[in-house]
Amino acid sequence: MSGIVLSAAVRQNLLSLQDTAALLSTTQNRLATGNKVNSALDNPTNFFTAQGLNNRASDINNLLDSIGNGVQVLQAANTGLTSLQKLVDTAKSIANQVLQAPAGYTAKSTATSAAAVLGTAANLVDGTGIKSGETIGFAASGELPALTVTIAATESLDQLNTALAAGGLTASLDSSNKLVFTTTNDYAGQTIGAITLGSAGTTTFGGPTAPVADAASQAIRTSLVNQYNGIITQITTTAQDSSFNGINLLNGDNLKLTFDETAKSTLTVSGVTYNAAGLGLGSLTVGTDFTDNASANAALTKLGSASTVLRTEASALGSNLSVVQLRQDFNKSLINVLQTGASNLTLADANEEAANSQALSTRQSIAVSALSLANQSQQSVLQLLR
Results as ranks from 00 to 15, higher is better:
Q376Y: 05
G287H: 08
A101W: 08
A342Q: 02
L99A: 14
F48T: 14
V88I: 15
D214M: 10
A314Y: 11
N96Y: 10
G341L: 00
P145V: 00
S66P: 02
N62L: 13
N177M: 05
L321K: 15
L326Y: 14
V10K: 05
Q358M: 04
N185H: 09
G230P: 05
N344K: 11
G282Q: 02
E353S: 03
L179I: 11
T236C: 01
T90A: 14
G68W: 03
V324E: 07
S243V: 07
Q328M: 12
D289A: 03
A374I: 02
L249P: 10
N293Y: 09
T362A: 13
V98R: 03
G119W: 10
I335C: 11
N55C: 00
I136E: 02
L144D: 03
Q339Y: 01
S58C: 02
D349T: 03
L157K: 04
V10F: 14
A316H: 09
A101G: 00
T182S: 15
A140K: 13
T106F: 07
R30D: 03
A91L: 07
D65M: 09
A91Y: 01
F290K: 05
V88T: 11
R56I: 08
L24P: 01
Q72C: 05
V324W: 08
I60D: 03
S175N: 14
N248G: 04
L84C: 06
A299C: 05
L74M: 13
A40M: 12
L303G: 06
T27H: 02
G68I: 05
T285G: 01
Y105V: 12
E313C: 04
V368G: 10
A140V: 04
A350M: 11
F48Y: 14
Q190I: 04
G189D: 12
V323P: 11
Q72A: 10
G252M: 12
L300W: 11
L6I: 04
E313M: 07
Q234V: 06
N38W: 11
E155S: 02
S16W: 07
T233A: 14
L371A: 05
L17W: 06
I60E: 10
K86Q: 15
N55Q: 14
L124S: 08
F48I: 04
T128R: 09
G252W: 00
G280D: 06
P44D: 07
F259K: 11
I130R: 03
N336G: 15
D19V: 09
K178M: 13
E143G: 12
A50R: 00
L284S: 09
G287P: 05
D65P: 00
T204Q: 08
S307Q: 15
A77W: 08
A140D: 15
Q383K: 07
S380D: 14
S243F: 06
Q218Y: 05
Q339C: 07
A77M: 06
L24R: 07
L338A: 09
G287T: 10
S58L: 12
D65S: 15
A213D: 00
L317I: 15
M1F: 13
N226Q: 15
N254P: 08
V88N: 03
D19N: 15
N275T: 08
